[in-house]
Simulated assay, not measured.
Amino acid sequence: MESHARVFRIPVFSGVADAEIAPGGGATVFLRLGLPTDRAGLVAESRRGFPVTVIERLAEVLGRPQQTLLRIAKIAPSTLTRRRRSADGRLLPEESDRVYRIAAAFGDAVDLFEGDVAAASGWLGEPAKALGGTAPIEHLDTEAGATQVHDLIGRLEHGVYS
């Protein structure tokens, strides 16, 4: 079986917002998960299906139980076990998309807290008045909820009281 080495590059701001994730803590999150940091690479990897190890790594960097991430990503523990035992060890594209939603929000939170992973993780788990008193991480189970979290992060970055 031929092995293909993956090359990950740390993005350098090029002024092309659609091509790369802005440099900073958010891009580092994707590197720590073993995922590409450029948008085209992330799309391709999501379509192929993320390796199941992304779930374990994300739980570790978030400091949350894997069961919490599985619940939010709507992946049954038995499904993860099957994916882990499969020949390619990958999630389905739909599952990868849901995991990406969590990782992207975490990356944005890390950027909001200027690279402080612990503060970003803590913020995701704390009730937010702007989200009806529920924690941002609990909103990441739907695309609409994830949009609310990203909007809140954007408002906070710009100093809008929320």
Rank of each mutant, 00 (worst) to 15 (best):
R57W: 05
S121C: 00
G154R: 10
A118Y: 06
R82D: 07
H139A: 11
S14L: 07
V43Y: 09
I21T: 13
P93H: 07
R155S: 08
R64Q: 15
A104D: 12
L140R: 04
L124I: 11
A104T: 02
R98K: 14
K129I: 12
Q148A: 11
A19E: 14
L152D: 06
E143M: 11
A19T: 14
F13L: 07
G107I: 02
T79V: 14
I75H: 07
A104C: 00
G107K: 04
E126S: 14
G34W: 03
L31K: 00
F50W: 11
E56Y: 13
K74E: 14
V7I: 15
G132E: 08
P36V: 06
P136F: 09
D151Q: 13
G34R: 04
G24M: 08
A5H: 12
R101C: 10
D38G: 00
L91S: 01
A109L: 11
G89S: 09
G89M: 08
G25R: 06
L92G: 01
A146P: 09
L156Y: 09
P51K: 00
V29L: 05
E126Y: 00
A27H: 08
P36F: 00
Q66L: 13
G145D: 08
R98H: 10
I75F: 05
P136C: 12
R85N: 12
R47N: 15
V12S: 13
Y161L: 15
P93K: 07
L80N: 11
Q148W: 02
R39P: 00
E94C: 03
A109K: 03
R9A: 13
L42R: 14
A17D: 13
G133F: 11
R83L: 01
W123D: 10
F106S: 05
S14A: 14
E95D: 00
R90S: 01
I102T: 07
I72E: 05
A105E: 11
I55G: 03
V99G: 00
S162Y: 10
V52D: 02
T147F: 10
G122F: 02
A105S: 15
R64P: 08
L80P: 10
G122R: 15
E126K: 15
A73L: 06
D111Q: 02
T134M: 10
R71C: 05
T79L: 06
L70S: 04
F30I: 01
G63R: 04
S46N: 04
R84L: 02
A146K: 05
T68D: 13
A5G: 09
R47T: 01
A146Q: 13
F106T: 01
V54W: 07
P65M: 02
D111G: 07
L70E: 07
R64F: 11
D97R: 13
D38T: 07
R32M: 12
I72A: 02
R101K: 09
G145Q: 09
G15R: 02
V16M: 08
R39T: 12
V110M: 02
S96V: 00
A120P: 03
A59P: 04
A128G: 02
A73T: 07
